[in-house]
Design a protein around this nucleic acid. Structure first.
Lengths: 215, 215
DNA sequence: TGCCGACATTGATCCTGGTCAACCGCGCGG
DNA sequence: CCGCGCGGTTGACCAGGATCAATGTCGGCA
């Protein structure tokens, strides 16, 4: 429904990098599906049962409160696998942040994937629990610092970090408002800890200072 | 305040009440270990590899920041299993909240437990993600309401809810201070939503009101 | 049964981050 | 090429919850 073909040529080069993907055993590989920026991959309440691997782009996983407040529980970058649930129903929404390609793995119901899924689930659990510490007990500066370090880490620990998501997304991930995120970033910039190469690209100048802040 | 001494005592067999729980296959069952209130079951950094099932009592799982701030990521009540990690190291602390008995399952390294562990990991992941929404986007009243409902739910949905943990524990679970937890509880009491039977026992009088608050 | 200490409640004040609002700047379409 | 709109930044003010402090109460044990 939402997936549609799109021109790969138009994509920024950093979305095109191939990644070393551990293919799934016992799962039928579907062709890559394309999701334009902002489109839904699956919705809360929908039937689950298919796994997704990000080929390029980025995905946000989130829940909503009745009044529209949103909590993003995870971002998924190239190479990462998402879509598994505790039961047969999706408890979250998944949306493409930018133009995103995902490879779909359809699993034969007879196949036992637990051996391959367990490490992923445990990794996700650990990440979620670490995120709980950030949301429950850290202040705005600490949250943003932790976020920048997490993103740098997940992109290979380079000085230059891509932020595929908007300030709004960052805020909804960190439990902050967009204004607070913005203010903290400028404060970090003024302190010489980071440099904003563009809105969506940050260079980390003082990694140790950031580390000291982020915990 | 938080006892660090690990005082593991094995109970005489006539104390070992069995409870209706699905035993593990392929795991050596150890006798029940007894942990007095406040004692450590395992520590962050320790080697993992053993599973625990709460026989009686309650357990808190938490992390600490350098300055002592604490985030409890989960409580485990009777019947629940905890102790599994993404790698061979514990990333969290586990402590007995009250006098607690845990059954230890030692797993032969050859045995593949993933089939049995995956549902538990996924359940934990879902709970953690729901907790993220609470910590990231809900205010104090909503957090406490959600907590009371969660506890009621996990105790069979009865009107009367046992809170095995202190206000401090509740605060560190909800990302609030002990004072705020206390104030919210008195406010709920004044509104006739709950009744405090004792410090550790709450009766839910208006479940629907609580539900509306907890989201 | 009464005492003590830990835990909990309540009150006063402070401060971080939210809210509301104005403005900026870039990219896109007319 | 200009103007519009969206996303981001910045500022002023506000409020929810933290902090600091005093008091209250429960429960365990002598």
């Amino acid at each position: 429904m939402y997936a549609q073909a799109s021109a790969k040529i138009e994509l920024p080069s950093h979305f095109q990098q191939p990644h070393p993907s551990p293919a799934f055993e016992g799962a039928a590989v579907q062709p890559v599906s394309f999701f334009p920026a902002g489109t839904e991959i699956y919705a809360q309440g929908e039937k689950a049962g298919v796994l997704y691997q990000v080929e390029f782009g980025a995905v946000r996983i989130y829940r909503l409160l009745a009044d529209g407040r949103r909590q993003i529980s995870a971002f998924h970058l190239a190479g990462e696998i998402f879509g598994f649930e505790a039961d047969s129903t999706h408890h979250f929404f998944a949306e493409a942040i930018n133009s995103t390609g995902v490879r779909v793995y359809r699993i034969a119901s007879a196949t036992d994937m637990s051996r391959q899924l367990l490490p992923l689930a445990l990794k996700g659990l650990t990440r979620a629990q670490e995120h709980l510490l950030v949301l429950g007990r850290q202040n705005a500066i600490e949250r943003v610092a932790a976020f920048l370090l997490e993103m740098a880490d997940r992109q290979g620990g380079l000085r230059q970090v891509d932020l595929p998501m908007s300030r709004n997304d960052i805020g909804d991930y960190l439990g902050l408002t967009i204004e607070t995120v913005s203010r903290v970033l400028t404060r970090l910039k003024e302190k010489g800890v980071i440099r904003l190469l563009s809105l969506r690209s940050v260079e980390i100048l003082k990694r140790d200072t950031l580390l000291a802040m982020g915990e």
